[in-house]
Design a protein around this nucleic acid. Structure first.
Lengths: 205, 205, 205, 205
DNA sequence: CATGAATGAGCCTTCATTCAT
DNA sequence: TATGAATGAAGGCTCATTCAT
């Protein structure tokens, strides 16, 4: 029984490792070629395995791409949450989130590019999954803003919209940063300070 | 000669008309189905012509899609410029642009959706074309901001980044607006006021 | 309008011709290689067209194969019916059908082989379509036998089973005939006479 | 040496046992899903072993399927031969064979279905193997008929063809029987009697 | 002996593009 | 100019087969 348990665990580890390897490959391919030009062939080549093997770990292409982007968002969420929990001062709440997003994108340029590409909405389905994730950050910020409004720190603004504005503004700053050579990007902290100060003053009572 | 000239001219008109018709069709298809599911077949059907005819007016699919989105941006630019030129007061410059963008997107939902869908960058090429257009607005806003900084109205901020933030923030607001039923979207002016006031205060000296 | 009608008709003729060409090709491939080894590639090659063209005339492989076998049975049915209607004497009814089947198979060896190959029943579905067709002949013979029983010419036998036996016996004779070199097959009429006499005596009152 | 011999023998038994297990599994899968949907995966699962193990006992899929159907025929042959040897009266020879075939198919519905499906002749090879087996029964019946013709019991008929007709007729009756619910199939003996009487009278001098 | 992960050839299908009419 | 039938490259997916463990 212990044997069986250990075997199971070992197998699980291998499976997880393979999945992670493949997902990393997908991200690189998407970041390099875009969704449209991401073929199973390319992914297999990038992962250093054969096409058929992909289907041992993922049901089909949709499944693979969805899991890759979802895992990307999950990683970002975890990273952000981790940073955010270290902060208690509500005055720094927004700064914390902005900083977390910025740092994460800075350090995961490939991942950001992969997530920023829209999975070519076939009408709705796949796009929804990505949007739902982004909405998550919007909602978190929305709540923070609401709190500050009730606390009297912020004036009465349409919190949902401002929250969305912040997320998109951060996205915009990331785009600008990624265009600059790494050496000239300047300290992340400067951009954090700028975003926070603009929105902070913008909403202050 | 005059004859030939007139014929030429007439022919040109017809060509432009056909191109415009096709481009409209492309936009509708993209807005409805996303880039991935936009086939030449669908476009031809939507335009009420045959597949082969598309190739008389556009070199290939990439050319067609690129021109469709570029023309979209051109239209937006023209529309915005038109609105912007009516304004002289520098205090209202940003408000004018924000309002123009918002109004335009509100009234051209299909075009916005088509332009917002990312053309599945095949690495870099096509995406660049879209980004270059967006950059145009960023640059305009950047100059306005620079002017106000020099005028002492705004404090010293990284004008390029804030300009980008504004553009992306507007995009965010449009996304939120388009999610709401048309009747409940609220007056555009409210959103304009909100965006302008947030960024205005945010940058005020 | 006449024009449009004529154009339509002409196009229809072309389409029908192409479909028939392709269906002939499918039959040859099935007869030669069996269902399992009948690929769209082989069919296209046999028909002298490209793979993609097949999909202009048939929805997919299943559609193509189904129509090919169904049309085969329809042809056989038409041919048999034609021969059968020329006969009025009820004493010759069975002989007529047997002769018709035998002659048809003799002259359409490829079609017979194609139809005799079993469509790789995916459990039930596709096989049903073929079996239903064969059942048709069984049912016709069943009625003839019932008539003769009531007329007192035949003794009381399980008409359905005997009808099935006759159809399968004919199939058996066809198989034997097709194994012999064409020159040595002997006159069809001899085989007809033999089958009819065996079953005629076998059922006689 | 004795040791080696004993080991060898024991090993042989195991091998045969495994082969039989696998062949049984193949039959069940074929009967359930048809040839087309019979994959090595399914067979392995049905046999409760791994895919790779199949290749320890059979060279490849073709070999496996061929042996499975051949063994099916061998079983039927053995069963028939057993019944036939109990009969001495030449008048009952045909009845004995017909009864044996019918009883065997009745009791081995799965096997019959597996054998009746055509193994998708890849040109000729595999089909031949099946046909050769069926030919065996035809040949036996052919000899019986020849004997009876020489004995003056039967009139002069084309013995080969009639033998084939009988085999196929039996097949037809089996098909009809298998379509009926088990409870309503009627006694096998009735069908035996019917077939024998039809062909007996049909060939009587 | 047994396993099952890995492979890759081969299949079906789609779709941008061409060209004869 | 306009058409749409034809093409064929390319993509997603399956499955018989192999091989390291």
């Amino acid at each position: 029984m212990e044997n069986s348990l250990r075997a199971r665990t070992k197998s699980d580890v291998v499976v997880e490792f393979r999945e992670a390897e493949i997902i990393d490959a997908v991200r690189r391919v998407i970041a390099r070629s875009g969704f449209r030009n991401t073929s199973m062939e390319k992914v297999a080549e990038e992962a250093g395995i054969s096409k058929g093997t992909l289907y041992l770990y993922f049901k089909n292409k949709e499944d693979l791409v969805r899991k890759a982007t979802e895992r990307g968002h999950a990683e970002m969420a975890r990273s952000i949450e981790k940073l955010a929990q270290a902060t208690i001062d509500p005055d720094d709440a927004i700064a914390t989130y902005v900083r977390a997003m910025l740092v994460f994108c800075d350090q995961n340029e490939i991942l950001f590019r992969a997530m920023d590409a829209r999975p070519d909405s076939d009408g709705e389905k796949s796009a929804t999954s990505v949007n739902r994730r982004i909405d998550h950050y919007v909602t978190i910020l929305e709540r923070i803003i609401d709190d500050r409004i009730q606390a009297g720190t912020y004036r009465k603004v349409h919190s949902r919209r401002v929250a969305r504005m912040i997320v998109e503004a951060v996205r915009g700053v990331v785009i600008e940063r990624l265009r600059e050579p790494v050496g000239q990007r300047g300290d992340v902290e400067n951009d954090v300070e700028m975003i926070v100060s603009v929105f902070g003053r913008g909403m202050s009572a």
